[in-house]
Design a binder for these strands. Structure first.
Lengths: 127, 127
DNA sequence: AATCTTAATGCTACTTAGTTGCATTAAGAT
DNA sequence: ATCTTAATGCAACTAAGTAGCATTAAGATT
């Protein structure tokens, strides 16, 4: 079920993602909005925003789901929006990287999509 | 704490990974051995086998931790064993792929390791 | 602008992944 | 055979994520 109503809670979440290109974990989002909305609501809004192509998600190193702005579709018809993500081991910040992920060919296999996570130190923590 | 004793339970898990190159989720492993050992024991043995470099792990699409044979170290000194993993959307099987992951350079960032998961249909499910 | 429909929310209770503490067991060294 | 302590089992816990259901509020309709 995609987004069909711009509720106050949806606006709050959209505003947050309007301000940052970072990939934010659900746990953090639930915490950020703990006084504003129920955690179930956070989960449901994120689901709908992802179905609508407004956000995309991936699992980070620890298996935590993270959401970030934009689409990540791989329809054969559509343009490939697949890109890499970065996760800082020190401060935990995660970002989308403008690195397109090439999809390799493997005999007898069909590859539909992929996830690529680079792990290390971000500019802030490295210097 | 690495492996120091070859207990019956450790042997059972080593035997299983001796037979397959697949990456198996902890949930499946707990289920496979539910009559043979406690789930806490499964978790602890997997931890130790990973620390010993006998197994390596990664998070799959759903954030589930999976384990497979072999090392995945990236010490600057050691040889880079980083490789891609594959996950079949249909049957759920997961394998290590002999695709080395190139580590890109990003200005001001330091990349230590990476995870690359290809998702699609395996040879069995595709044909 | 009052009414109506139903998408969306809040709340409670639940499921499942993963962890911790502690008493007991059993590798394997002495 | 004995001893040390790594490893296990068990129970109780934490945390991520989901489901059911009554209530609320977008926003369409009149």
């Amino acid at each position: 079920m995609a987004i069909s109503r711009k509720t106050k809670t949806v606006k709050m979440i959209l505003d947050l993602f309007g301000e940052t290109n970072n990939a934010i974990s659900i746990v953090d989002l639930v915490s950020i909005f703990r006084n504003k909305m129920n955690k179930t609501t956070v989960y449901r809004i994120l689901n709908r925003l992802e179905e609508s192509g407004i956000l995309h998600s991936f699992s980070d190193k620890d298996g935590l789901k993270r959401y970030a702005k934009g689409n990540q579709k791989t329809d054969p018809d559509n343009k490939n929006d697949l890109h890499s993500h970065f996760l800082c081991d020190d401060c935990g910040v995660s970002t989308c990287l403008p690195l397109e992920i090439p999809i390799p060919t493997i005999p007898d296999y069909k590859i539909n999509t992929s996830q690529h996570l680079l792990i290390g130190q971000c500019d802030n923590c490295h210097n």
